[in-house]
Simulated scan of single mutants.
Amino acid sequence: MSYHASFVNAHCPVERPKPVTGTPVETLKVFIKFHNEIGADIEVFKHLVPSKHEEALLSYEYGRSGLGAKVYGFFKTQDGTLGRIDEFLDARNMEPEDVEDAVIRADVAKGLAMFHAMKTSLEKKAVEPYYEAYHKMDKLKALGKEGGVSVDNLVDYDFGARVRKVVDTLESIGGKAGWCIHDNQFMNVLVKNDSTEGESKVFLIDFEFVMQNYRAIDIGGHFMQKMFKWFDEESKIANCRKYTEEEKRHFCEEYARQWNTLTGDSDTGDQVFLESEYGYMLAITFDIHITLWFMD
């Protein structure tokens, strides 16, 4: 067993030795997550993010597609801590350079399209409430000054009015909505260590922030996140080039093809690309909001 603590949920892989004789009936390695109710502390998400049971249900339903981890069950420790036991995925965190591979890039696009269009038993809540609350937090200014960095302009910035313009534009061009992951940092995409011919090379994980939104926020967010490595100790800026327009358009073509297969729509890659340009701006706002929340 090895224990790891991240910003939100502690987790640990647990492995048993292979039996000396015979074939094991049960899996020998699992992934355990210890839960807290993330999102409930963030005003804008309070009534939108799934509970841990809802998140597990979503994970279970997505896991049956073969594109995510299977959910085995829940547990409660003696001190009352809740947790979940998932399939251990034989995969590594995606690196920014991975999406420069056309095959991996296409698999991420198809995986997102399948997630967005997924039919799930979760209650479908409107997109609009997501954009109704952006709060100033004066104590963050004090935290910034303690750290020797002024964040006054960031805290005071009128995100609400700017985001409203983007959302109005997305609405006017017919931007589509679906189940969005929001937290699209590359550590939430796993690249399989071994995949068979015709099988997706990636898994999508971590659904704490899943809610209905414009699909553009995930697509644009994916393009944006190529430039960041959030858990790098020396610098959060990835040492690589940005997504090129050619790569973005390839991603959007693959996405549109998968989306249309699942929904019967006739979206074009150009349509998805245009949505993604506005989604990029929404994703920036999401990450700033989360970063300020972590500071808080």
Results as ranks from 00 to 15, higher is better:
W230L: 14
H222D: 04
E128G: 09
I237C: 01
T21L: 11
G73T: 11
Y278V: 03
F207N: 01
I205L: 07
T169N: 12
V30W: 08
D183Q: 06
L262E: 11
E87D: 04
H135I: 13
H53C: 05
G63A: 08
D183P: 01
V30I: 11
R105I: 05
N36A: 06
Q212M: 15
H35E: 14
C180Q: 03
A256S: 05
H4D: 10
K46F: 15
K70A: 13
R64C: 14
I288S: 04
F31Y: 15
I237Q: 03
N193W: 10
N260S: 05
G220H: 04
A126G: 00
V108I: 15
Q212H: 14
A10W: 04
H35A: 12
I237E: 06
F209V: 03
E246C: 03
A283W: 02
G39T: 05
T21K: 00
F273L: 10
I38Y: 14
H250D: 12
S150H: 00
P13V: 14
F7M: 09
T285L: 01
K46Q: 15
E61L: 09
P96Y: 08
I85Q: 03
P50W: 08
Y134S: 05
V189D: 02
A216P: 08
R162V: 15
F31L: 12
I173P: 01
S266R: 08
W259P: 03
I290H: 06
E246V: 10
V108H: 05
V8T: 11
G175H: 02
W179S: 04
A109L: 09
Q271F: 11
I38C: 12
A5T: 10
R105P: 02
D107R: 02
P50T: 06
D79R: 00
E54Y: 11
G144T: 01
G80P: 04
Y131N: 04
N184Y: 02
W230M: 11
R84T: 14
E277R: 11
K125P: 03
E95Q: 13
V189G: 02
V44M: 14
A256K: 03
V14Y: 12
V103C: 07
K52C: 10
K248I: 08
M114T: 08
R92T: 13
E246H: 07
Q78D: 15
V127T: 13
V189H: 06
